[in-house]
Design a protein around this nucleic acid. Structure first.
Lengths: 337, 337
DNA sequence: TTGTACGCGTTATCAA
DNA sequence: TTGATAACGCGTACAA
């Protein structure tokens, strides 16, 4: 075992509680003993046990974060934002993955409760829709990222997918496109629904009836592969522009265009969603909808902190922004084929 | 507070220790009481406290992982690999970032010790070189990822940077290139040194004297930006091919070529390192050195498990592989300019 | 200012 | 098979 305050107490001929006080910034302690104890502690290689502290104070200074997968370029910065303010506040974060699996998400959240985390942050939960009651029973503060319609005890910070999608499609519309495709995803039902709706809303507002043949949805897990697979059907359906669920999907689509000898944006305009780090470096640079990912993470953690402080923070819906780069251009009808 | 085994004991008219046994798969417990207690526990909404268990057993079923930054596309899969086998073995992982800062890495490792993690995994440590003794004092098992020359009590799993770099440069050499550039990085001193050495070794083996003007190193943090910045000096130095520290750097370089109207690979061959997910989708698809990132994480965590089981696992040096795609091609002297 | 004693929720060692 | 009781390492109310 490692050295405890008891060991120090013995060596210093003091009571354990005195050691405890000396090590904290407790007011009721002599300046001299404080010094002496601290020196002794360092000398003995004392490392305070957060575990014991947690048991006695009923606080773990720990939060749990559950994401579908970490290797999604979208997640990296979100996690980073969380970690940044968590560490700043003296918290550590348990990172776990749900792999887009409901049972696993439940299991993971269960484990976090056993670990007595002080708060939980869930990104793109697969549970919220169907198991709303499940969350009501959980006692620790929960903040969801990507939940646009929180209800009950759930707190959330999200980017406005609906408006973001509208922005994207309106941009395409403004360029003169009328046959605009959408590449969706099934394993992110929530945000996919909103982005699809935003796409449809924008079309309708422009007096265009949505054409089902222009919507490509598949259960291919890999975003890029799905993007690749979408080219043929969409192109066959006469699309002149495509709005993709996210940047990786767009990148896959771009790659398919390249292989097929189609020029972007001359033959086809492509717009993504997320604005991942590589988006600006893709060739040609990707036009996309920017999500403040770092900020998303920061605010979620800040919300946990507020909740812990007894406040009742308001849910936040951050707006996304259009970033025009070079994969979208005006419609040139003659360039098709 | 939540319900404890004491609460259950009271309600069941049993001793707390009996409850404890009933909840575990303890042999010395009646089948009937076991059932009864478990049912009661579920009914009362009992959630076992890992904190208390940890204090009593001196095991936290927790490991700490420290990385420079999570938003590096290289890290994602490594973390995923760790998390995967950790979860499989009933462990949770604390993820923390060092931001390429020595002091912070020390602070982070310190906190992990206070939390009594059962093991620590450090990716690309900035400490190992100078503070070797620091690690000798740490009692929990430590496994380093990316440490090619582990020493002392340090265990490690790494990809062979030296050979990987040689592979890359030999590929370029085989294509007929003689003036090959290298884009390095300062904030990853370790692997950068190995890759640079591999680059030089390959050149020397081919009878080419390394030319300092062909080595571009800068302290620009952002990999892609650094790649972009490298084009002018390298091109001016007459490079016909460039080996980049990693894929993001290569992507930045590609982007700069595109903006400048240079064609890859016709005017310049480019090769990266890592084989990140987007590498295959970049235009043109990036030739690179493949690192088995998921495997790196898995093996590191497995090593921790072995260490915990009292075994003495051997350090592992995994070999990297060349993946030829379309950013490298034979030298065509006339195409320069 | 310092010491005593107890609680936090478990596991583990003895007895019964 | 079950029950009492001591640990685990720390914070803290209360007493000295």
């Amino acid at each position: 075992m490692s050295v405890s305050i008891y060991d120090i107490a013995k060596k210093a001929n003091l009571a354990p509680s005195t050691i405890s006080r000396a090590l904290q910034d407790h007011p009721r302690i002599g300046a001299e003993t404080k010094m002496r104890v601290r020196a002794l502690a360092k000398e003995m290689g004392y490392v305070p046990s957060t575990v014991a502290k947690s048991l006695s104070t009923n606080q773990t200074w720990t939060i749990g974060m559950v994401v579908a997968t970490i290797s999604d370029p979208f997640m990296g910065r979100v996690v980073e934002g969380v970690e940044e303010v968590a560490m700043g506040a003296g918290f550590n974060v348990f990172l776990s993955t749900s792999q887009n699996n409901r049972q696993r998400e439940i299991a993971v959240i269960d484990v976090l409760q056993q670990r007595r985390v002080d708060g939980i942050i869930v990104v793109a939960s697969h549970l919220f829709d169907r198991y709303r009651r499940y969350f009501d029973r959980i006692e620790v503060p929960i903040v969801m990222i990507d939940e646009q319609e929180p209800a009950g005890v759930i707190h959330a910070v999200a980017v406005d997918d609906l408006r973001g999608a509208r922005l994207a499609v309106e941009h395409l519309l403004g360029l003169g496109h009328r046959r605009i495709g959408y590449v969706g995803v099934t394993n992110r039902p929530k945000s996919n629904r909103y982005r699809l709706r935003g796409y449809e809303d924008a079309l309708k507002a422009a007096g265009i009836a949505p054409d089902p043949r222009l919507v490509f949805t598949s259960n291919i897990e890999d975003h890029a592969k799905r993007g690749e697979a979408s080219l043929e059907p969409l192109w066959a359906a006469g699309a002149t522009a495509v709005f993709c669920y996210n940047d990786m999907t767009a990148i896959g689509l771009l790659s398919a265009c390249y292989k097929r000898g189609l020029s972007v944006p001359d033959n086809l305009s492509v717009i993504g969603f997320d604005d991942i780090d590589t988006a600006a470096y893709i060739i040609p640079p990707l036009t996309t909808i920017h999500q403040p990912r770092l900020e998303l993470g920061r605010r979620a953690m800040q919300m946990i902190l507020d909740l812990l402080a007894g406040q009742t923070p308001e849910n936040q819906l951050i707006s996304a922004e259009l970033v025009v780069r070079q994969t979208t251009a005006g419609l040139l009808p003659d360039k098709r084929r």
